[in-house]
Amino acid sequence: MPNSTTVTEFLLTRFSDVWELRDLHAMLFLLMYLATLVGNLLITTVITFSWKLHTPMYFFIRNLSVLDMCYISVTVPKACVIFLLDDRTISMAGCAAQIFFVLAFATVELLFLTIMACDRYVAICQPLHYTVIMSPRVCVQMTLASVLSGLTHSGFHTGNTFRLPFCQSNVVHQFFCDMPSLLKLSCSETLNNEILIFITAVMIAGGCFVFIIMSYIHIFSTVLKFPIRGERGKAFSTCVPHILVVTVFLSSGAAVYVKPTSSSPTIQDMVTSVFYSIVPPFLNPIIYSLRNKQIKEAVKGVMRRKLFSGKR
């Protein structure tokens, strides 16, 4: 075997080394990051302080908002640093932490989106049993089960990745550490890792996608029976954006994680990763909450109370 040096740190990759483009990319990422934080923080605050929104649907929307703030914070701040500064290094521990949290938050995000589809199914197709099926205890249990599942899934794959030796190039062809990019740097056989990633992706992502699609098939078949056209339009406007976000989230993740590691890295891989790591947290406040009349009314109510208390 040729002489090789064990890797102790990694170098992340920019979209471009041109200064003007680096500034542009950093600005775009920073604006999306700030918009995500402000939108999700507003939603979390409004739902917490408005008793009218203390329902299962808004309970899960608030959980999703908190999750999205954590999810996007794992990658974007570090990405902005490597875009603007000449230091692209990330330690082995920092890389492992990024992989663990990205995979954990992505898994929990998918499970939350699945639960929200289930909530809509029960609300529309079984409204008389809604309060019994989606009781506060059940909602908390599903949330805790999702978080525990995400942490377990992420811990398994992170440990399985970092048991491999890295003694080739230390350049990660991605703006954050992720498993597919890291497996390409290993100097040992990674077939078992690829098989395990594929199996868990099919089981978790595929299972959730099938469940969501089946839920919406039942929802749409029920909605089409509504006698009032306005009610049908309201139901469709709530469900269709949900399906679009799930489709973009899963298709972009599958394009990166299910792709064979032997494939040569391209800029398209980096762009695709944006659609599962940054875009969903950015769009979720717009799709699920800021378009919602109840959320808007609650925001106005909270602002009026704050202004009134300030005057007193």
Rank of each mutant, 00 (worst) to 15 (best):
T6K: 06
V7G: 06
E9M: 08
E9T: 11
T13I: 08
R14M: 07
D17N: 12
V18S: 00
L31W: 04
L31H: 06
Y33K: 06
Y33T: 02
A35L: 14
T36V: 06
T36C: 05
L37E: 12
V38Y: 05
L42M: 14
S50F: 04
H54R: 09
F59T: 13
S65V: 10
L67F: 01
I72C: 02
T75A: 13
C80M: 15
C80S: 02
V81H: 13
F83P: 00
F83C: 04
L84G: 01
L85F: 13
L85D: 11
L85G: 13
D87G: 04
D87H: 01
T89E: 04
I90M: 08
M92C: 03
A93G: 02
F100W: 09
V102C: 11
A104N: 07
T107F: 02
E109W: 06
L110V: 06
T114C: 07
I115D: 01
C118A: 13
D119R: 03
V122H: 00
V132W: 00
V132N: 05
M134E: 12
Q141C: 14
M142K: 09
M142T: 10
L144S: 11
L148V: 13
G150N: 07
T152A: 08
S154E: 02
H157E: 11
H157W: 08
T158R: 00
N160H: 12
N160D: 11
R163W: 14
R163G: 07
L164H: 11
S169R: 05
N170C: 06
F175S: 06
D178L: 13
L182E: 07
K184T: 12
C187P: 01
L191C: 06
N192E: 10
N193D: 14
N193M: 15
N193W: 08
A201R: 03
V202S: 07
G207K: 10
C208F: 02
F209I: 10
I219Q: 01
F220A: 12
S221R: 10
L224D: 13
F226L: 02
R229G: 06
G230S: 15
G230E: 15
G230L: 15
F236G: 00
P241S: 09
V248N: 00
V248G: 00
A255E: 10
V256F: 04
Y257Q: 03
S262G: 10
S263I: 10
S263N: 10
S264N: 11
P265W: 00
Q268V: 13
M270K: 09
F275Q: 04
P280L: 12
P281G: 07
N284C: 15
P285L: 07
I287V: 14
S289K: 02
Q294G: 08
I295L: 11
I295S: 03
V299A: 09
K300N: 13
S309K: 13
R312V: 12
